[in-house]
């Protein structure tokens, strides 16, 4: 087992554990913190796959901007106490069972597909570098890129319109 594999397993376990804790924490603030941990471990996976640009963007956008926004909202609403009324036990049970079933079905279905024999290039390769992605982004994908700026603009206006006091 080389260093890459060790890192892979370590990051995977961290991500899964973080995700479990997001779901099970009773306090929303803790959930946010666990989610940030998960995002960091996913960024670690990106680095392992030599997708450095995405790793950085993931940390900046998700772990940074988005999760801070979540924290702000929680604090604004003063939800950081253990105030959530518990759901009915049966609903909880059914939800967990369905999630588990979906996991089982998907794993069983994808266990022996054609792609499963292929492997992933780890630690090497240049496509994840900002130079290559940037060239693609500003040549072939320039139109979607520009459109996404319009999307941001409209999201911003939408957020302001929805959030303002009427």
């Amino acid at each position: 087992m080389n260093i890459t594999q060790i890192l892979f397993w370590l990051l995977s376990v961290t991500a899964l554990f973080g995700a479990m804790m997001v779901v099970t924490s009773r306090n929303p603030v803790y959930s946010v913190l666990w989610l940030i941990l998960t995002f960091f471990s996913i960024s670690g996976h990106y680095i392992l796959l030599n997708a450095q640009f995405l790793a950085i963007v993931n940390i900046i956008v998700y772990a940074g901007a988005i999760m801070v926004l979540f924290l702000f909202v929680i604090m604004l609403m003063n939800l950081n106490k253990n105030a959530e009324p518990t759901r009915g036990r049966w609903i909880k049970f059914a939800g967990a069972i369905s999630g588990g079933c979906l996991l089982l079905v998907l794993v069983a279905a994808l266990r022996s597909t054609e792609v499963s024999s292929k492997s992933v290039q780890v630690g090497v390769g240049e496509i994840g570098l900002i130079k290559n992605l940037g060239r693609e982004l500003f040549t072939n994908y320039v139109v979607p890129f520009e459109i996404s700026s319009i999307l941001f603009l409209s999201a911003m206006i939408g957020a302001v319109v929805i959030g303002k006091k009427d």
């Binding site: 991500a15 899964l16 995700a19 479990m20 997001v22 779901v23 998960t38 759901r87 609903i91 909880k92 059914a94 939800g95 967990a96 369905s98 999630g99 588990g100 979906l102 996991l103 998907l106 794993v107 994808l110």
Partner: peptide, 13 residues
């Protein structure tokens, strides 16, 4: 898949 299903279970519960 595992992360995804944990997400789903969270939405449901």
């Amino acid at each position: 898949i595992a992360l995804f299903c944990i997400g789903i279970a969270g939405v449901l519960t």
